[in-house]
């Protein structure tokens, strides 16, 4: 099985995760400041800045694209409750 790692720089932790893991599933467990609000992709509370490895994340859905735009997100920002780590190394911090 392909390996993936997810690094949360605000708590200096890298987690070895199964491909397909949503960022929010790990961020709460490791104590990162990336926390959820609605958990349904609506509120933008879990905005996450992707420092490295954006290409290893799932493509944003139409819902995520809309919420990112409405929250004036930068090009490297994603919603932790929506996007999944597919492979490789991804490094994030709270957005």
């Amino acid at each position: 099985m392909e390996k993936a790692t997810l690094t949360f720089t605000d708590v200096s932790i890298t987690v070895n995760v199964p491909p397909g893991t949503r960022i929010i599933e790990m961020s709460e467990k490791v104590g990162s400041g990336i926390t959820y609000g609605c958990r349904e992709g609506e509120c933008g509370t879990c905005m996450t800045h992707v420092i490295e490895g954006a290409e290893h994340l799932s493509e944003p859905t139409a819902l995520e694209q809309r919420v990112l735009a409405e929250n004036l997100a930068g090009k490297d920002d994603r919603l932790a409750c929506q996007c999944r780590v597919l492979s490789g190394a991804v490094k994030v911090r709270p957005g």
Binding site: T5, T7, S12, I13, T14, V15, N16, V17, P18, M26, K29, V30
Partner: peptide
């Protein structure tokens, strides 16, 4: 120091 952990550690 940076740490690396597995899911089981969590």
């Amino acid at each position: 120091p940076p740490r690396e952990i597995d899911l089981a550690d969590l």
